[in-house]
Nucleic acid binder design. Structure first.
Lengths: 157, 157
DNA sequence: TATTGTTATACTCTATAACTATA
DNA sequence: TATAGTTATAGAGTATAACAATA
């Protein structure tokens, strides 16, 4: 008769030589998170030369392709809370990569724009990002890479 | 003649109506992170009833399928740093979901085992996780879901 | 000498409440 | 009344250094 909290197996306290991860690896969430962390790890290395974290790159990239975008629009698009964006924007402005200009139709809002220095940095950074993509997806065929992105979009869009 | 930090475009300060995210959505890392966050969001909802975060579920699941696994093995497998695992293990032990037993061959290590209560909880939780998978991957065909996991593994393994 | 588990601690990331100025 | 931007602050997550016990 075993007590309530007795572990399974009377022989007790076996050692684990090789960890079996097959169950976790069958789960979509686990695989998506591990893959995302792997890509981010390479991203951090390659983007260190620009002093850009993934979130900084995302913000600057959205400003690049949407000149005049507001902080609110950045927050909504990237899932960042407004109080947490303020510091990032201030830092990028201090580095003279972006400038705030009055919004043409809403006096409360500020439109964000790249400076010429910001434009140059992002040309280089987006080139690096493109190289990073091919590196990370190196073991995938071009078709597989396209399929992967298409299926990921179906998950979160 | 424009100064060094003048934004592109003399007409200045346009407004952005619809944010163009096409560039970010072409990047693997961005899509992987968004997908992972989407899955984790549903996970948090469904697992709240068990009071399990994703990391708790991962730890308990590895103990389930590897009775006697050590803290060090959990850290290596899940990419957790040892100091950050201590509190989680203590909390799970306090909830009487796991027990520590001496390692059969290494006096420094402790083997981790589920209690009967832990076994019951994980039977339910893994059943919930299975349902969650079909829900999240609901817009994917079974073949697509398998393909997605296969391609994600190629990224991080 | 190296490793397991641990404590203490610092840093980053994320979240909530409340304020201001404009709409 | 509602929204954009901001401040202050709290909480969660992640990081390094250093120690005791054992290999």
């Amino acid at each position: 008769m075993s007590a309530a909290n007795t572990p399974r197996g009377a022989a007790a306290a076996p050692a684990v030589d090789k960890v079996d991860t097959s169950y976790l690896e069958s789960l979509l969430g686990y695989n998506a998170r591990r893959a995302a962390l792997a890509v981010i790890e390479v991203f951090l290395e390659r983007m260190a030369v620009y002093d850009l974290r993934p979130v900084d790159f995302s913000v600057l990239s959205l400003i690049t392709h949407n000149p005049g975008i507001t902080s609110r629009q950045l927050c909504t698009t990237l899932g960042i809370l407004p109080p947490n964006l303020v510091g990032m924007i201030n830092a990028l402005e201090k580095r003279e990569l972006i400038v705030r200009r009055p919004h043409p139709r809403d006096g409360r809002a500020m439109g964000l724009h790249l400076t010429q220095a910001g434009q140059k940095l992002m040309r280089d950074a987006e080139r690096t990002a493109a190289g990073l993509e091919t590196e990370v997806a190196g073991r995938l065929s071009p078709t597989e890479a396209k399929t992967l992105i298409r299926l990921l979009k179906k998950i979160y869009l």
